[in-house]
Design a binder for these strands. Structure first.
Lengths: 278, 278
DNA sequence: TCATACGTTCGGTACAGCCGAACATTCTGG
DNA sequence: CCAGAATGTTCGGCTGTACCGAACGTATGA
């Protein structure tokens, strides 16, 4: 039951359905596995169940299209029904459907990859991505909780929080170096965030991936809380340093337009309130 | 989905897990429901199970992020984990990740919405969509099996099949009118497909939605079979009729580039073989 | 040729999933 | 302001199903 070992824990709460939890873990295993799929035996081993049980789960998922049975060959990959559900999920998030035209515009204008993240308990979760014309494709997964301290969107979100909240959040996750430029010290991060606050946008200067930079700015919901952030991503060498501020203002402007659509206050109208927080 | 009768049937095959099947149906119900979610009682009614059972299922899905518990308020919507899984699913389809840059280019060049569909047993399933700059956003769901006879991508796929196969497929689905322009008669459809075959691209002229047109062309996998189709979608009035052919050639060219990437033959090299089929 | 992997089928049994009843809580309308 | 009906939640207990292990046929490689 309560195996505390490294892997996922079997949380056998009374109000949870075991076979469903297993089926979900099965999908996660397929998702994290190689793109060309895994065999049934592989899945059974990874899931820790017998082959027959795994087969029953996989069959059930496959008949609904959540898994895809690519026979012959390695076997199971994720199915097209997940594309459908993911697409609908993005539309059910109000922000997703509202932002898409703005992202297209922003990607077209900046020739960079534009993204939008929602704020999930202080963590950024990117829910939409639009590649700019001719832009290089980056490895930018959607729908995942990212660490907040090493991305422009994440830092923009952090910048709306109080010092205490920021310290608490960083205490949870720790500040792990992802490149040589990652800020791994809370005080430096706070300085950096103060700068972002005064500029109205946050910059990720090769802190998440070598040679890649991002610029992000937050938008606010009707209740005044930080709802998320938009950001653009590009190759460091493509943009002269003196144009960074101009780009920041552009992103800031798009974020304000999102705020307006959501019925929230623009950043400039809030700036005082944010800086006044303890 | 393919619910023939009113409600889905409880297919209790030996090799299927009931609770998992129910959980999946629960997600489908949430997906097909209103964007702002449904209450637990609504879900229980729609699923035909008791509230306690539904709660256990929903809780299990929610703890994994597949469902989102938007409290307070109507309650359950699809969760961000589905965005993640859907994104990975698109990347696990080889065509998805390969086509995206081409779609961006195509959308940028034509100023229209570009899409790519894979061929799933003769039916088109759109797996990727890139909106062009300033293009109107259409209701274009991803990951769904669409009817083949009323879309450019679908007709392009049909055009690679034999008359017997086409008749069989149309017999399955029937030819239902979606607008006043939909082709509802098999012989007319065959004529239309012959035209598409000779042109190298298929046209949907307001046959799926009033005022909307599409142009699509097929690409081929390494084994020579039809792997899918790319298409562009726009507003009928925006394009003068005499430019239709030019647009078709453009789409044809992009489809050929996909074929090359997949290691398949270009359309022109196959045309003879296709027309020679019984 | 054998040996070892694979996916699949099937019985039997323990236990997990399911329902219904009863609970607290919020919403609705008179 | 209160009655009534909706909601979400908890719990006991029986039923039946989800699970495992063993045995099957088949594909792959030594």
């Amino acid at each position: 039951m309560q195996s505390v070992s490294g892997g996922d824990v079997e949380v056998a709460s009374r109000y949870t359905v075991r076979s469903v939890a297993r089926a979900i873990r099965l999908m996660e295993i397929v998702a994290d596995g190689p793109p060309d799929g895994q065999s049934l035996s592989d899945l059974a081993r990874a899931l820790g169940t017998s082959k027959s049980t795994t087969l029953a789960l996989a069959r059930t998922l496959a008949t609904s299209g959540l898994l895809r049975d690519t026979r012959p060959g390695p076997r199971y990959t994720l199915g097209t029904a997940l594309i459908r559900l993911g697409d609908i999920a993005r539309n059910q998030l109000p922000i997703g459907s509202l932002c898409r035209p703005l992202l297209v515009e922003m990607a077209d204008l900046t020739k960079m990859t534009a993204r939008v993240a929602i704020c999930d308990g202080g963590f950024p979760v990117f829910i939409e991505r639009v590649d700019g014309p001719g832009s290089v494709r980056f490895h930018t997964p959607l729908g995942q909780r990212e660490v907040p301290y090493a991305s422009a969107a994440g830092k923009a979100i952090l910048a709306t929080m109080s010092e205490a909240e920021i310290r608490a959040l960083c205490g949870q996750t720790g500040l792990q170096a992802r490149t040589a430029h990652t800020i791994t010290d809370v005080d430096s991060l706070l300085d950096n965030l103060a700068l972002a606050r005064s500029h109205g946008f946050a910059v990720d200067d090769e802190e998440d991936a070598e040679g890649i930079f991002c610029v992000g700015a937050t938008f606010f919901g009707y209740d005044g809380s930080c709802a998320g952030a938009v950001s653009v991503t590009g190759i460091k060498g493509d943009l002269p340093a003196w144009r960074m501020n101009e780009l920041g203002q552009t992103v800031r402007r798009y974020a304000d337009r999102v705020s307006e659509i959501l019925g929230g206050a623009r950043y400039s109208d809030r700036a005082g309130a944010i800086e006044a927080r303890p």
